[in-house]
Amino acid sequence: MSSNKNALIRYKTLDKCLKNKYKKYTLEDLIDECSEALFEFEGKESFVSKRTVQLDLQNMRSEKFGYEAPIEVFEKKYYRYSDPEYSIHHISVNENDLKAMNNAVQILKQFKDFSMFKDMNGVIQKLEDSIHSTNQKSIIHLDKNEQLKGLEHIDILYESILNKKVLKICYKSFKARESNIITVHPQLLKEYNNRWFLICWQKEAIYNLALDRMEEIEIDEKTEYIDKDFDADRYFGEVIGATVSETQRPQNVIFIVNSQHAPYVKTKPFHHSQEIINEDEKGTTFKICVQLNFELERMILGMGEFLTVLAPRKLKKRIAKSLRIANSNYQEDRDR
């Protein structure tokens, strides 16, 4: 059992004892009660030290968890609440607290129809009931699309990662003519630009599989799961998006954004490595250090005429080619 859960059980037990008007509790009694409560939950002997209970009482008295419990020692040995009506479960909250909690509920409600968060429905309802949440419209809107193809697979993928299960996935990439059955060891679910991916270990390498290309999934109980102790921040640290090359090194990508649109790139950097290397009347020159991938090109092309790639030469040529083709498409429209 986690230390946090142990602490919650002890606080709940101490609260029950301290508000008991018909029994006197010494420190030793409180220690015994906490030990017994933990035994009931864990099913094994759990000795709680004197120091632990003393710290628990101190924390309950303090503002640390918002309790500020009125704990007193009477007759120099017994513990109780000086206010007989007090309980840590009856903590009052002010109007600002209620507003903050209500705003949090409005945000959570945006996820309650999402299959991945379906188990949250009851929790959200309880929160609404307990804080007397109103039916006010949300003032924070999160970008989501529950109709995306592949979202129906999230539950089984999530559970497989959580429970360390190997999967057999019927997968058809955009380039393939036929579907293939692949056996994978799922490590992480990744969302980028409203599209979901499964990061998995397969045949001695990490692969990125789009959920919208998955046709069928089943658990492989016969194959032993390989846990790669996946570090998402490190793995995606040198890329924009979800496409990572195991062999490509990151490169310095230098680009200039005109003065009108430079503030948007300053306040929402393309990548955490972004830095400004020059500013003048023409615009702002930025540098990022990333792998060259599809998502980087899409981001650059999305800025259109407001951004010009200066380096590396390979990326500059690819962007120029894409823009020439796009321009020719519109030239054909004019010729019709």
Rank of each mutant, 00 (worst) to 15 (best):
N4M: 05
K5A: 11
A7V: 06
A7Q: 15
K12T: 14
T13I: 02
K16M: 14
C17D: 10
K21Q: 15
K21R: 15
Y22D: 15
Y25I: 02
T26M: 01
T26N: 09
L27R: 10
L30H: 11
D32E: 14
S35G: 13
F41N: 15
G43R: 03
G43I: 05
T52P: 07
L57P: 07
N59K: 05
F65S: 08
F65V: 07
E68A: 04
A69H: 09
F74S: 12
K77A: 14
Y79V: 06
Y81D: 07
P84D: 13
E85K: 12
S87Y: 09
I88M: 10
I91E: 10
E95L: 08
N96F: 06
D97W: 11
L98K: 12
L98D: 10
A100V: 14
A100N: 12
A104I: 00
V105R: 01
I107M: 13
F114H: 12
F117D: 09
K118Q: 08
M120S: 15
V123F: 08
K126F: 13
H132V: 02
Q136R: 13
S138T: 15
D143F: 07
K144A: 14
L148G: 11
L151F: 03
L151W: 06
E152C: 05
I154V: 15
D155M: 03
I161W: 04
L162Y: 11
N163W: 08
K165P: 00
I169M: 11
I169P: 09
I169G: 10
S173N: 09
A176M: 00
A176V: 00
R177P: 06
I181D: 13
K190L: 13
I199D: 03
Q202E: 10
Q202Y: 06
E204P: 05
A205I: 04
L211C: 04
R213P: 05
E215D: 11
I217C: 01
I217G: 00
E218K: 09
K222Y: 05
T223I: 09
D233K: 02
D233A: 02
R234N: 13
Y235T: 00
F236I: 01
E238F: 00
T243K: 09
T247M: 06
R249I: 12
F255Q: 04
P263I: 00
K266Y: 08
T267P: 02
F270R: 08
H272Q: 15
S273C: 11
S273V: 03
S273R: 02
E279Y: 00
D280A: 03
T284Y: 04
I288A: 08
R298P: 01
M299N: 10
L310K: 10
L315Y: 07
K316P: 08
R318K: 11
I319E: 06
A320W: 09
A320T: 10
S322K: 06
I325Y: 12
N329Y: 13
E332M: 13
E332L: 10
D333G: 02
